[in-house]
């Protein structure tokens, strides 16, 4: 055996691991995650018209309201068959936002009106928001180059000119 069970070396290894796990959790919380593996059906049904927004970006109650109102979804009909609707609503509620992502139900249940979203984007100029390449604040991928992978790290941001 290389080290005994209670050797200082073994203990510090545990310490290191624990630190890594905690750091990872903190990082994840800061980036709209824990990065949940997106349900293929969710991507299929919801990402035809817009990005497959991470379920952690809205609190459960907002998701429920949105899912109960899909025939009038921000001005378009996004209705689903009853079985799919039930499955996706339950999945979204299970993985809905916690912590600062659940502190409020944002106005109109829009992710882009949540306090954390507004604060994170306060330095983005109105010209950038209006750029044809951006078009909508819901178009995450216009600037967040890794958004389709759930990566919203600031280093991956490229604001189109």
């Amino acid at each position: 055996m290389p080290f005994a069970l209670n050797s200082p070396c073994r203990l510090s290894l545990f310490g290191l691991l624990a630190t890594l796990v905690l750091a990872r959790a903190a990082f994840a919380d800061d980036h709209h995650s824990p990065r949940v593996q997106l349900l293929p059906k969710y991507k299929n049904e919801c990402a035809s018209c817009h990005e497959a927004f991470a379920p952690g970006m809205l609190p459960a109650e907002s998701w429920r309201r949105l899912m109960n109102n899909l025939p009038k979804h921000f001005g378009t009909d996004a209705s689903l068959d009853p079985a799919t609707l039930k499955e996706l609503t339950a999945w979204l509620a299970t993985h809905a936002g916690t912590g600062k992502y659940a502190r409020e139900e944002p106005p109109e249940d829009r992710i882009t009106r949540a306090a954390w979203f507004v604060r994170k984007h306060r330095e983005v100029s109105s010209t950038s928001w209006k750029s044809p390449a951006v078009k909508s604040a819901a178009n995450c991928g216009a600037c967040h180059t890794g958004s389709d992978q759930g990566d919203f790290n600031e280093h991956g941001v490229r604001i189109p000119r």
Partner: peptide
């Protein structure tokens, strides 16, 4: 292109 979100179709 989706008229409100700009997503490619």
């Amino acid at each position: 292109k989706h008229a409100s979100t700009g997503k490619s179709i």
